[in-house]
């Protein structure tokens, strides 16, 4: 089976609310694909549609070229984690994995393997009701890995994890992708996907706003801006403005300069004897890039709304 997810033109309404409005994207193997958008953007609904749990009014979602509902041992092809809290609290973590394994024709040995992979061996024989959210997330990942699937669909897997857990999860997701799996990870916080995602699908209001590689996204958001560290902030702003640059204050000793190359900035500051300690090319964070993108989207929506109101 081809390790891909193809989502094409999904539409779904819940009464008067449009949940999915032509959602279309593809998840390819060997990459972690971030699925980002504010709460209510349709991420979870899309994931449920991929897993055949929710029906859609139009469009289709295919996993490895087939609708999920036609898969015979789905967990051997798609591992998923939708809600880490979906556990019977009286059942131990191990028994939760055991019934899932049995449903796919797998045995207890496979359960013990995945428990080791997610580092939950010490707690696995305890009632799931006693687990912290972080442990539930690990149990959910173990469940997703049971069938050793080429495709993984994970809804907010780092939600509620401590920093150590988040670091582990990032490395783990990257290693899964490095093995050639297609990994779709949703989050409502772009920063959570920093250093994890290779590609992001950014959604809002039930459709895709951007479908772009993380490298391209950051490059476009960074532009040709320069970060300048200086103790003489006012003086620096004056001379650089005279030289035709746009200058913004981004910290106590930090200025962001655009409109001039790095060499010109150094030259202008030197000519005017303005002291500075560092000049570097500005690199946008994923979060900044996301904010830039969604600001456009928000402004666009605001403008449309205003026009409509007139």
């Amino acid at each position: 089976m081809e390790a891909t997810i193809e989502v094409t033109g999904l539409r779904k309404r819940f009464g008067p609310t449009v949940a999915l409005d032509g959602m279309t994207f593809t998840v390819t193997p060997g990459k972690v694909t971030g699925f980002v958008g504010p709460n209510g953007a349709g991420k979870s609904t899309t994931m449920r549609a991929i897993l055949g749990l929710d029906s859609v009014d139009a469009g289709h979602a295919l996993v490895g070229g087939r609708p999920y509902r036609t898969l015979r041992h789905p967990l051997r092809q798609v591992g998923s984690l939708l809600d880490a809290g979906a556990l019977q609290p009286a059942r131990t973590g191990r028994n939760h994995l055991l019934w899932l394994a049995h449903s796919q024709g797998l045995g207890a040995r496979r359960v013990d393997e995945v428990v080791g992979q997610v580092g939950l061996a010490s707690a696995i024989r305890r009632r799931a009701g006693s687990y912290s959210l972080g442990m539930r997330q690990r149990l959910g990942i173990a469940a997703a890995l049971l069938g050793d699937p080429p495709v993984l669909v994970l809804d907010e897997p780092v939600n509620g994890m401590d920093p150590e857990g988040i670091r582990w999860m990032r490395g783990f997701l990257r290693s899964l992708a490095a093995e050639g799996r297609a990994v779709l990870v949703s989050s409502h916080l772009m920063s959570e996907l920093q250093d994890t995602a290779d590609h992001v699908v950014i959604v809002g209001r039930g459709k895709v706003i951007a479908d772009v590689s993380v490298a391209d996204l950051i490059e476009s958001a960074s532009g040709d801006r320069i970060t300048l560290l200086t103790t003489a902030r006012t003086q620096a702003m004056t001379v650089l403005a005279h030289a035709g640059a746009t200058v913004a204050v981004t910290g106590a000793d930090t200025l962001t300069v655009s409109g001039l190359s790095g060499e010109r900035v150094v030259a202008v500051l030197g000519e005017n004897a303005v002291p500075f300690s560092e000049v570097s090319a500005h690199r946008a964070s994923l979060e900044e890039a996301y904010m830039e993108l969604t600001r456009d989207a928000v402004e666009f929506h605001a403008a449309v709304a205003e026009e409509a109101a007139r």
Partner: peptide, 11 residues
């Protein structure tokens, strides 16, 4: 919400 896990495991 376990029904989703059950139905994902057996569509």
């Amino acid at each position: 919400g376990l029904i989703r896990t059950s139905l994902a495991a057996s569509p």
